[in-house]
Amino acid sequence: MSLSEIHLAVALLLLATMSIGLIRVAIGPTPSDRLMAAQLLGTSGIGLLLVLIPVIRVPALIDVALVFSLLAAVAIVAFTRRRDGEDA
């Protein structure tokens, strides 16, 4: 088994955990649960992009992972801001 096959197997495994985590996004039960699961999805997506780089040999994907990590907080801040607006 070569090195890039191990990377591909890890990528497949991460994709499988992402698809299972999507069930939690879909069933909830509360909106916080959904957003939490979406955050886990973002983190696994970054890991997936990083191990995909040696497999498909596109080094520019590291910039995509960088943007993923930069925008991870935006959705959560937009989601929780709602509560403060209602409290005021």
């Binding site: 999507l22 996004v25 979406a38 973002g42 997506g45 992009l49 994907l61 995509v64």
Partner: peptide
């Protein structure tokens, strides 16, 4: 929230398509 998750996965698809 499902749409946000969809966007993440679509970005992964574009990455896979080089």
């Amino acid at each position: 929230i499902l749409f946000i998750a969809f966007g993440l996965l679509l970005a992964l698809v574009w990455a896979r398509l080089r």
